[in-house]
Simulated scan of single mutants.
Amino acid sequence: MATEAFEEIVSDFDFLEDWEDRYRYVIDYGRRMDPLDDALKVPATKVDGCASQVWLHPQIEAGRFRFDGDSDAMIVRGLIAVLRALYNGLPVGEVTRVDAQAELARLGLDAHLSAQRSNGVRAMIGRIRGIATEAA
């Protein structure tokens, strides 16, 4: 059920054998993401449960889910970009059907993130699913 953008990340990861290179890839992926406007970095968009500052700004357009996000930590910003690749563009009703943990496991991220980062990713996924549920 992964998007084409996420499948590209999976394909790229297959070519990167070293985890240092994979971390750099995630960080660079996040750097290419447009920054979230400071006006959107408000308590309503802040994700609790993350060690870093994280903001997610969802939008539903023509029945399709998308979100923008930002973080004060480069690796987390990259993880937000990976989640955007996983979810952006899906019909809002399909967002909750995505097994994000399984999809991220395809990248091996589940085994290579610290406990705090893993908790933060789960918090972001929970926020995304909650928003999609409310919108559906």
Rank of each mutant, 00 (worst) to 15 (best):
K41S: 02
T133L: 09
D48R: 07
C50G: 04
R22F: 13
Q101K: 11
S71M: 01
R77I: 10
V121Y: 01
S11W: 14
T3H: 12
R24D: 15
I60K: 01
D21S: 10
N119V: 04
R66V: 05
G49A: 13
Y87R: 00
P35S: 13
R97E: 11
G78L: 12
R66W: 05
Y29H: 11
M1I: 08
F15E: 15
P58R: 01
L109P: 04
E134F: 10
D21A: 13
R97L: 12
R22P: 10
D99C: 06
W19D: 11
N119D: 13
A132N: 07
V54E: 01
F65I: 02
S118G: 04
L79Q: 14
G78P: 14
A102W: 08
N119A: 13
D14L: 14
A115D: 05
P91W: 01
D110T: 13
L83G: 05
R22N: 10
A81Q: 04
I128E: 07
F67K: 05
V98M: 07
G120K: 02
G63I: 01
A39R: 09
R31Y: 15
G126A: 14
G93H: 07
D14K: 15
A132T: 06
R84V: 05
A73R: 00
A81F: 13
E4D: 12
D38E: 15
D21K: 03
K46N: 01
A100C: 11
A44T: 13
C50A: 14
P35V: 14
A81I: 07
M1N: 09
G78F: 10
E8T: 15
E61Y: 03
V98H: 07
A100G: 11
I128A: 11
K41R: 15
V76C: 00
V82M: 00
D70V: 07
D68S: 03
P43S: 00
F6Y: 09
T96P: 03
